[in-house]
Every structure is written in C-alpha cells, then in structure tokens.
C-alpha cells in the first residue's frame, strides 16, 4: 500500500469526465440551427417581435428577415418589419413572409403584399402576403384593400399607418 492515494484519485475524475464528454459534446453544439438558406426558426407564442416586443403568435401574420451575417429578425406583423427597417436601417439578405391563406413561407419577391385595413393583423397594420397576384387581388377586393408591389411594400413606414 505504498502508491500515493492522490495519484489514484485523479483517475476516477478522469473517468467521470470521459463518461460525460460525449454527452456534453452533444449539448454544446446547437442542434436546431435552421439551414443557412431557409427561413429562420420561429417559435410561435414564445418568440418576441424584434420591433414591438410582442409575442409572435400567428403564423399567417408573421414575417422575418435575415441579415448578411445570418442573424434573423422576427416580426409578429409585416408592418413591424418595414417599421424596423425604417427606424433602424440595416442590410437585408432575404425577407421572409407567410402566405396569409396557406401559411407557407414565401421568399422575398415571391410574396405579393396586400394592404387590407379590414384585416386585424397583430399590430393593426393590415399588411399580409399571399403567393400569387390572383389571390392577392381577390383578398384585396374582399377586404377593401389594395395590392402593393414589393417596392411599395418596402417603402412603407410607420407614419403610413392610421393613428
């Protein structure tokens, strides 16, 4: 019994560490990262809007954009997206909107924007997107709204909405 106990004590800790290492490696790496080119992850009823801080609850109104370095900004209302870009301009790699009717993600100019004052969107801006001109016109007619071009949509600012 001459070998020093301290020399032995190290090995159990080492063993424990070895046991835990794979587990921790698993945890350390973010598992749910969305693909770099797809729409950003969105957790409804949890994630706050990056402009108004309200909780994003409804897919059909939610929108997002992604910056060139891959950061996502999430919005409960398309109007919040344009408002943030007006208040705090920054480069945008891609804008993502939802088809108001099918709930599908729409990339950038694939969206046709309808401004429909009769629709109660989360921030009351009445801005929604659909995937094609035809449905956009139908929606505009139904709600007493108007179809916007993508650039008209981008040009909107917070002052443009009713107070």
């Amino acid at each position: 019994m001459t070998s020093s106990p301290s020399a032995r004590r190290r090995s159990p800790l080492g063993r424990a560490a070895a046991l835990l290492a794979p587990l921790l490696a698993l945890i350390g790496c973010p598992g749910a990262a969305s693909s770099p080119d797809g729409p950003p992850s969105m957790r409804y009823a949890v994630d706050p809007c990056d402009r108004c801080q309200m909780i994003v609850s409804e897919e059909r109104f939610a929108a997002a954009y992604v910056t060139p370095d891959g950061e996502a900004r999430r919005f409960d209302d398309l109007g919040c997206l344009t408002a943030l870009l007006q208040e705090r301009p920054e480069p945008v790699r891609e804008v993502w909107t939802h088809d108001h009717e099918t709930r599908a993600w729409l990339r950038g100019r694939a969206a046709v924007i309808v401004r429909a004052p009769g629709l109660v969107t989360p921030m009351g801006t009445g801005l929604v997107a659909v995937a094609d001109e035809e449905r956009a016109r139908a929606l505009a007619t139904r709600t007493g709204g108007a179809v916007l071009t993508y650039d008209e949509f981008r040009a909107l600012g917070p002052g443009a909405w009713p107070r």
Partner: peptide
C-alpha cells in the same frame, strides 16, 4: 414569454 407586468412602448 417576455413576462412584463406593464410594458410601455
């Protein structure tokens, strides 16, 4: 989520 008692914006 966000958990404000009162929020002012």
């Amino acid at each position: 989520p966000s958990g404000f008692g009162l929020g002012l914006k």
